[in-house]
Each structure stands twice: as structure tokens, then as C-alpha cells.
């Protein structure tokens, strides 16, 4: 079989798995809640609870507008735990034996999973954007720039999905995947510029936040949505001065490590 037809076959297998995963969005209530309701709740919670209480920080613009990109970033990163959870769940179910006995490409179960979670993140971003618009958030840039903002968010979430896939293939229990990843994801999404200005953080945390890729994703989205204040001082660190580039570097490094790792782990995990 030629390389091309093998690649086409792999892509087609992954597409079949992706479609199967996406069907569950509407069929499994947990998934629907996770994908739509909790993102809506986060936007409302941050807009009204924090947006009201914290008011206008030294970010210069309306805090609510400042928050939205942070909520987007946090939600899509959390969305990656769903990748791990679902993959671990599949490994425990009988269907994995069916997949493994079929002449399909061995990478397609993991590829299909991470790709379908792009879909899930797009749904989440869509409902969050609508909710954001309702509470007063506006995109103040061009359509193209805004699309770039969404793209950066989705690309970063895709990379994190691959990390979570590896975690799932090692621990293999959905609940453990969830708990383990929360321990990492909470600090990662909070010690960042998601909800506060980094200048308000104490020294070591500020350094962490400056180089935290969640900060650069958030900064990139904010800039591309036109939600930064032109009067605000420019960021001092390179990572936040070039947030798109810095984020994409992270994305590439993560993918380079975790795509082959996850596929290798899947081959091993499924053959037990």
C-alpha cells in the first residue's frame, strides 16, 4: 500500500471515530452540560460576580471585557480534561476490543478523540461568545483578527488535549484522570493573566504567570479580539509581547512530544 493511500485510510478512520465521538454531545447529558451549560455559567459567574466585585482594575478597560478572553482560555484548557476522561472511559469499555480487532489505523482512536474535542471546544466557544455578547462583551477588531483569536485558543486546547490523552493512557481510570488533571489545570489557569492583571501578583507568581502559556493564549485572544486598552502599558516580557508566536511555539513542542507518545501508549494500553 502506498504512503498516500495509507495516510488517506488513517484520516478516514480518524474521521469515523470523530463522528462517533461528536454524536455523544447530544446523547450523553453529561457531555452536553460540560460542553454548553458550564461554559455559559462561567461567563455569567465571572461577568457578574467578579466583574462586579473587582470592577475596573488597572487593565484600563472594562473588566468584564478583559475577563472574557480569560474565561475562554480557561474553559478550553479544562475542555482538554474531557479528552482524557473520554479516552480512559473508552479503554474500559468493550468497544475498544472491537476497534482493536478491526483493520483500522492504530492512531485513529486517539486522533479521533483529540479532533472531536476541537469540535467540542468550538461548540463551547460559540455558546460562550453568545453569552459574552449578551453581557456586554464586544469584538473590537476585524473578522479576520477575531478568527485568529479563536484559532489560537483552539490550537492551544488541541495541544493540551494530547497531553491529557497521554495521561489517560497511563492512568486508565476516568475519575483519576479528572482529579489528576484538575490539580494541574487549576493553578495553570489561575496563576496567569486570565482573571487578574499580572502586575497585581506577588513576585514569583508574576514570573510564573508571565511565562505561563495560558497567559500568552489569553493575551493573544485579547489582542486579536481588540479587548486590550491601547493606553495600557505594553507587556514587559517577550512571551506576552509576542503572544501568538509564543503560544504557537508551545503548541508545536507539545504536539511533537505528546502525539507520538500518546499513539505509542495507546498501542500498549489497548493490548493488555
Amino acid at each position: 500500500m502506498s504512503v498516500l493511500s495509507a495516510a488517506l485510510e488513517s484520516a478516514s478512520d480518524a474521521a469515523v471515530i470523530t463522528r462517533r465521538n461528536l454524536r455523544k454531545i447530544l446523547r450523553v447529558p453529561d457531555v452536553l452540560v460540560f460542553t454548553t451549560l458550564s461554559p455559559i455559567m462561567f461567563v455569567l459567574l465571572f461577568a457578574y460576580v467578579f466583574g462586579g466585585a473587582i470592577g475596573t482594575q488597572d487593565t484600563g478597560i472594562d473588566y468584564r471585557e478583559f475577563l472574557i478572553a480569560g474565561v475562554f482560555a480557561q474553559t478550553v484548557v479544562f475542555g482538554a480534561t474531557f479528552t482524557g476522561y473520554s479516552l480512559a472511559e473508552d479503554l474500559q469499555k468493550g468497544i475498544i476490543d472491537r476497534f482493536r480487532s478491526l483493520p483500522m489505523s492504530t492512531s485513529s482512536v486517539v486522533v479521533g478523540r483529540t479532533v472531536s474535542d476541537i469540535g467540542i471546544n468550538l461548540v463551547s466557544l460559540f455558546v460562550m461568545s453568545l453569552t459574552g455578547l449578551v453581557v456586554g462583551w464586544r469584538i473590537r477588531s476585524s473578522v479576520l483578527e477575531a478568527a485568529g483569536g479563536y484559532l489560537v485558543l483552539v490550537a492551544f486546547a488541541f495541544a493540551i488535549s494530547w497531553i491529557m490523552a497521554s495521561v489517560a493512557l497511563v492512568v486508565r481510570t476516568p475519575e483519576v484522570v479528572n482529579n489528576a488533571s484538575f490539580i494541574v489545570i487549576f493553578p495553570l489557569t489561575f496563576i496567569a493573566n486570565t482573571f487578574v492583571s499580572i502586575s497585581s501578583l506577588p513576585g514569583p507568581l508574576a514570573t510564573f504567570a508571565n511565562w505561563n502559556p495560558v497567559s500568552s493564549v489569553t493575551q493573544a485572544a485579547r489582542e486579536l479580539f481588540g479587548n486590550t486598552d491601547p493606553r495600557a502599558p505594553a507587556p514587559e516580557v517577550w512571551s506576552l509581547q509576542h503572544p501568538v508566536l509564543y503560544t504557537l511555539i508551545w503548541v508545536l513542542i507539545i504536539l511533537a512530544v505528546f502525539v507520538p507518545l500518546s499513539i505509542r501508549l495507546y498501542r500498549r494500553a489497548a493490548s493488555r
Binding site: 478516514s12 478512520d13 469515523v16 454524536r23 469499555k93 468497544i95 480487532s101 478491526l102
Partner: peptide, 19 residues
């Protein structure tokens, strides 16, 4: 080894495509 969240038809259709 069937997928609970798919219909009977979708299960078999999926297997056919993976073959």
C-alpha cells in the same frame, strides 16, 4: 463490544467504515 451511545445501525455502519 458495542457502543452504548450509538444506535444499532450506527454501530454496524461504523464497523463497516473501519473495515
Amino acid at each position: 463490544a458495542v457502543d452504548e451511545h450509538l444506535t444499532g445501525f450506527e454501530n454496524l455502519d461504523m464497523v463497516g467504515r473501519l473495515y
